[in-house]
């Protein structure tokens, strides 16, 4: 039971390893799917909003520390993404939300929130066009992440965790 609680905290490092080494190989015009966010949404739905919020903060802070981005920016964005994903964690709809295409929609929504907040700290300045930021820095990466999350719906990993 205890290991089950800390497992998402440990599996993060494997996810990040894949994110920084293998995922860039499937980038489209510099846009990469966010594997960490998919993991975060999955655990937020299956384990509840409180757990998702704390996990989001942990994932974000670790990403900031390891990748060299502005410290605290990913922590803030992923905390909120985890919190939002937690809203889809109701007892009655939990299974539907992770085993159907609802999951991709939730990932897309959380990714939009995550990338928008993250872009606020990195991409915005006085000359920045908000529509451009919304489209290129938030919408396109979120779409890609949402599409990739479809694979996750059918993955044996998810099925095993459901049991």
């Amino acid at each position: 039971m205890k290991f089950d609680k800390i497992f998402p905290f440990l599996i993060f490092f494997v996810g990040l390893l894949v994110q920084v080494t293998i995922i860039p190989l499937v980038s489209i015009n510099g846009i990469v799917p966010d594997l960490i966010l998919i993991m975060l949404v999955y655990y937020s739905i299956t384990r509840g909003q409180l757990y998702g919020t704390v996990l989001g903060a942990y994932y974000g802070l670790s990403v900031d520390l390891i990748t060299g981005s502005l410290l605290g920016s990913a922590m803030l964005s992923k905390t909120l993404a985890g919190f939002i994903a937690g809203y889809f964690s109701t007892e009655t709809k939990r299974d539907i939300n992770i085993s159907t295409f609802n999951f991709s929609m939730i990932v897309f929504l959380c990714s939009m929130i995550d990338t928008l907040i993250f872009s606020f700290f990195s991409a915005f300045d006085f000359n920045t066009n908000f529509v451009t930021v919304l489209f290129e820095h938030a919408l396109l990466p979120s779409l890609y992440t949402g599409v990739v999350s479809i694979l996750f719906i059918f993955s044996p990993f998810r099925r095993k965790r459901l049991l």
Partner: peptide, 18 residues
């Protein structure tokens, strides 16, 4: 949930300033 969220957001903002 909201209390934890607010605490973590505040923590993020403090870290951002450091």
């Amino acid at each position: 949930e909201y209390i934890v969220l607010v605490i973590l957001i505040l923590a993020s903002l403090i870290i951002l300033s450091q």
